[in-house]
Design a protein around this nucleic acid. Structure first.
Lengths: 192, 192
DNA sequence: ACCTGAACACCGTTCAAGT
DNA sequence: ACCTGAACACCGTTCAAGT
């Protein structure tokens, strides 16, 4: 849960309400039209002027990032739990499925997260790093256990996750599953 | 090569020149800024008014489609040749690499081609169908030869091509190669 | 037959003025 | 401290008027 940090005063009641309404409308709009949905519409549906939206969220990425907050926490704690899973190969597979589904929450999100890895100024950057870190750790463990080929890197796993997320947005969840299954199969040792 | 069909008269000299200039500037702009590059800029650089661009190409897809013309022909003829290649597995791999590279000619093209498959009204639809058809045939041949698992479909192969193309645009050619290698490895028989 | 470019629609973003 | 909404910038697309 995202609680307020010390030293920050409680915002005015109307500001808090507007913030929550904006998040709710943004979630609905992004779900329906992708992360490129018009911000003007979101503001209007939330009952505020466009300037109020910009007052709370300096840009589209900040809005997406706030929306992903709790969802990120859940994903990361799943990742941490999987790191102690007794079956490294299965843990890696479960992580890749969960991360791909997460990165496909909204149409357009996979591309935004892909950009966020290389852009330190992006509001999405920290979450991208965290995902990459978990991928790296789970990959290293599976590699040590001999469950995947020695040549497989954490970057390879991150690439597969992003590609599967994009496939999910672009084509279907079924095709994303197929891509994941085939790639997971391809990660295994023996002439990998 | 795209020659004029019978019954169509030769266009006016200035129209032909404008058409060629627009294609050249569009290619440069799409290479640099992706398929979303401003059409106004393309028209200005070609030395014509925006209306002239729309006179030649009713929309962005038509422009992209014309740009891909010769490139498509080369890809399809490669596909036809590979269908008689003595090594079905290698032929499939070569096709997937070539198709993925083609679909990543411009940033944003992978998504446009992905949309083009399901949209009969798209100017890109015929080329998408042709690519899917070649994928299907090469997959069937590799399957008959026992080079890939019996469960692998032409759609799976198309999905991998699209995902690799997007990875190439989004991340790097190297990561796209990795995705292709891993997926190709995953296509092979034995618990596939 | 083809070209021009003003006109309109739409969206992102800022900021002076209000409360 | 926060909100409003006019203002500006930018781009896609159309079409009446020109040659």
């Amino acid at each position: 849960m995202h609680t307020r940090q010390q030293g920050q005063r409680r915002p005015r009641a109307d500001a808090r309400r507007n913030y929550q309404r904006l998040l709710a409308e943004a979630d609905a709009a992004f779900r329906e039209h992708g992360t490129g949905a018009p911000l003007e519409t979101i503001a209007r549906r939330a009952g505020v002027a466009i300037g109020t939206l910009y007052g709370h969220f300096p840009n589209r990425r900040a809005l997406v990032s706030s929306l992903l907050g709790d969802r990120n926490d859940a994903l990361f704690s799943l990742g941490d739990r999987l790191l102690t899973d007794p079956l490294p190969a299965e843990a890696l597979g479960a992580w890749m499925r969960a991360a791909a589904q997460h990165a496909a929450t909204y149409r357009g999100l996979a591309a935004m997260l892909g950009d966020g890895i290389g852009d330190e100024a992006s509001e999405l950057h920290p979450a991208c790093l965290r995902m990459a870190d978990i991928s790296e750790n789970l990959t290293a463990r599976a590699r040590r256990a001999g469950a995947i080929a020695p040549s497989v890197t954490g970057t390879d796993v991150s690439t597969i996750i992003s590609a599967a997320a994009w496939t999910r947005e672009q084509a279907s969840a079924g095709q994303a599953e197929r891509l994941l299954d085939l790639a997971l199969n391809g990660l295994r040792p023996t002439s990998g």
